[in-house]
Write a protein that binds this DNA or RNA. Sequence first.
RNA 1: GCGGUCGUGGCGAAGUGGUUAACGCACCGGAUUGUGGCUCCGGCAUUCGUGGGUUCAAUCCCCACCGGUCGCCCCA
Length: 430
Amino acid sequence: MKVSMSAPRGTVDILPKDSKKWQFVEKGIKEICNNYNYEEIRTPLFEHTEVFQRGVGDSTDIVQKEMYTFEDRGGRSLTLRPEGTAAVSRAFVENKLYGDPNQPVKLYYFAQMFRYERPQKGRMRQLNQFGVEVLGSADPAVDAEVIDLAMTVYKNLGLKSLRLVINSLGDKESRTNHRNALVEHFTPHKEELCEDCRTRLTQNPLRVLDCKKDREHPAMKTAPSILDYLNEESKNYFEKVKTFLTAMGIEYIVDPNLVRGLDYYNHTAFEIMSDAEGFGAITTLAGGGRYNGLIEELGGPSTPGIGFGMGLERLLMALEAENVEIPIDHELDCYLVAVGEKTEETAVKIVHELRAKGIQVDKDYQNRKMKGQFKAADRLQAKYVLILGEDELERQVVNVKSMQTGEQVEVPITTLVEEMQGKLQGGKES
RNA sequence: GCGGUCGUGGCGAAGUGGUUAACGCACCGGAUUGUGGCUCCGGCAUUCGUGGGUUCAAUCCCCACCGGUCGCCCCA
């Protein structure tokens, strides 16, 4: 009989108090996307597991230990999406968006992501991301545009303590050369490195640079930097991205150790961090990069791409950490106070008619006494209370009381809608 | 996957091995028989995350599990 239920670990309910904040943030972001001429894409919550295995990369943490994978009744292996890029790329290929005359294809999404991890501050098993993907252009100005978009989102919402970190992972040739140099450099020290790094050295040597445990190891400081291994083309590309960022007045820090966890990245990689106090161990707000080989990997024509994912709960956290006020409208236009059983039918009708004209109205459904109904109206910050008692009903009028001034006037029911429209309109203009 | 810490009403928060589990806020009702924000009065946990153990007796002691929270790893 007594069954206690709770939301699954790492998930939360977003209640009305907070959903207003989410709506505000989402609205602001969509406006920016519109300015930048990005269009929304919505893809399924889950995909065939191979989409992520091939797209994100088998050696990544996400694929190895963080996916919510299950088998459906038809025996197919499906996975709740752990990130957005692979899924959007799949949709791009499947729907042949590479054939769209408008190139590049500029997309944005708001989507839940799922990662099986131990929850902590700013890290949930179900998380919300806003993300952007631009497919079909290898122009470094697109890289700059995407970064600019992300920074603009934060700045417009009022964040100040931001740090943009960028790096270049180079093209295939540069990466291969760098990879070989890394293996050569670290192999003599292999036994001194942590367990993870020993496997990384063979699987994905680049990520050794990312290791927090071995950060102090002397070999780390002398490790070959990717920037020294960029070929002419890659170097020029990176230079242009930086030039464009500077032209837009966007400050950045180049960090040659910024590697990013996913396999599909090349050329530009970036992360946006928060420097705000009281942010806990989590500092990354958004991360992304270029992935020129991914579409091909998923069976499409060779198509360059770039994008980022932005954590929305982290964005909300950052807003809070920086004490950014989110304007929230709590007010209610009218609250109908109806007393006596006989008034109910008329009350229901009045409320319906006011609402039909776009006026915000509510009434009591708890069978409260008049005093209780007034308290409710007060709590809801109603601008006006409409009083309908048996007295008023008899005379087909309603008493309209302003909760601010306390003034009260009698209005015939037949002209109530009109009267209220006038009052509320006047209030808004002044 | 590993480690720290916590788990008492809607919320916040005391508390003790023993026959009534403080207090504050919120809420509901009354004083005010039709009018809010102030005041006063009253009501509001057969129960202290779940299960087991120790004990004559456990919310308080022990164990396990579950969950929250913070950190490691990695990232959004």
